[in-house]
Design a protein around this nucleic acid. Structure first.
Lengths: 257, 257
DNA sequence: CTCAATTTGTTCGTATGTATG
DNA sequence: ACATACATACGAACAAATTGA
């Protein structure tokens, strides 16, 4: 079984062996092995109709018992990634590649444009909130913020959770619009507001409890966290958005030259 | 215990409760609970010296038994994030915030500049490899590629694994330099090569076996995968780099305006 | 056709980990 | 701290199907 105490103790070793990496993970062995094999299939390292190594070989490679290796293969069969035949072997199923991507934008004009096919689900809202703490260079805080929490949905799949802090005074300029539309989009066309700076910071983490629930993923699933900060001509922070994206949807295309 | 068969069966429910999210995860309950609490401390949701909810309250919130909640708290104590006193309560330890970030660059000139403090560890190399399959728009494939595999280290911490495919002809122009320095940097200053386009695509995943080993993280740890493609004046793909970054190091700052 | 080798399927027993009350 | 129930992991043995010599 996974010995977690041991796992913590021997945190720094020079270079671990395959099976030591496996023991270190929190999840049960057979799920971890299944996960590694799933990735090999998804990355076409194990191609269509290809015969997988025998249970003995897999057990040897991952340094687990044959029963455990078999259990892992069983998971993949449940998922329809492979099929097995006694005496013959285990084979990769033919599967169409239907992965959906959400392209994160790196330019303001593109960012406010990507409304097509996305709908918004309201979660909660409240007035006069204090916005989360920011770096000192970000700008001057507004006296109070209007808070909104939503989920964005594309093709019936929720792909991100948004926490918005909007300068209360700005929100009052068009409350109906802000509630029903993309906030950045409304912000962009608002008369009497000049946006001086807008930037976003992307980091990577795992889902917290709320996000996992709303995005229908497990707690340890990878997510991208994007914080967007918008300031007006007076360097007032008019908008702070914390967005949690499903990691498996996110794609970020950056032209370097 | 976590019932995985059940977990798979009821994949699509409308909105799960807190404890249902926990049951769904692969890791044992007490580790998941510990993970959630750790995140609350790291995000300062539970501040320094703050008293944690009682075991009863925690058990109630996460819908687990008191023993399991206590086991989770035990993990955090082992990690030094909290301390406990019988009859008094559990409190968050004072901890300096020493998180290291690696700023991914979005511009060529900045990208080739960030050599400071990073060293390269050679893993493997080989001639005449075929480079991984690319999109049709990426450019024209070179006849053969020189392959290199390395680990980049900053402040003694390995933070990314790089797989490089370099046009064999380009590699021959300065093999010593390419082997000892940052490849992009050498590419940039190389006489007789004009770079027409360079772009990178970032996606998010979890560590594979090799990367986990080299980066000293667990298999299910989140990672950023960056593919960089560089083409010359003839639209020939001279460089393909697949980089696996530790998710907890990555930070990407993007100016939208 | 038979035999041996290979591969998956099944079932024990045993030990330990996880979760609850 | 204890008792109970179930999940995970291992090794070993045996059964059933497939393949090719």
């Amino acid at each position: 079984m996974v010995n977690h105490t041991l796992r913590r103790r021997e945190a720094e070793k020079s270079l671990l062996k395959n099976h030591e990496i496996l023991r270190r993970g929190a999840a049960p062995l057979y799920l971890q092995v299944a996960s590694v094999m799933r990735k090999r299939i998804e990355s076409a390292q194990w191609g269509q109709d290809e015969r997988l190594p025998s249970l003995e070989a897999l057990a040897e490679e991952f340094q687990v018992s044959r029963v455990t290796a078999r259990q892992a293969v069983g998971i993949l069969e449940e998922d329809g990634l492979i099929w097995r035949k006694q005496g013959k072997g285990t084979f990769v199923t033919n599967r169409p590649d239907d992965r959906r991507w959400f392209n994160l934008q790196t330019e303001w004009s593109n960012l406010i444009k990507l409304i097509e096919g996305t709908s918004i689900k309201f979660i909660s809202a409240s007035d006069d909130q204090t916005c989360p703490e920011l770096g000192p260079d970000d700008g001057i805080m507004a006296p109070s913020y209007h808070y909104m929490r939503r989920v964005s949905i594309k093709d019936k799949f929720p792909y991100c959770v948004i926490n918005i802090y909007l300068d209360q005074r700005v929100f009052q300029m068009a409350p109906k619009d802000f509630e029903s539309e993309l906030v950045l989009s409304v912000l962009d066309r608002l008369e009497g507001l000049k946006i001086k700076r807008a930037h976003q910071i992307l980091t990577i983490s795992t889902a917290d409890m709320d996000s996992a629930k709303l995005l229908d993923i497990s707690l340890d699933a990878p997510v991208a966290i994007v914080r967007r900060v918008v300031t007006d001509q007076d360097d007032t922070i008019v908008y702070v958005g914390d967005v949690v994206y499903r990691g498996d949807f996110v794609k970020l295309d950056i032209e370097l030259i």
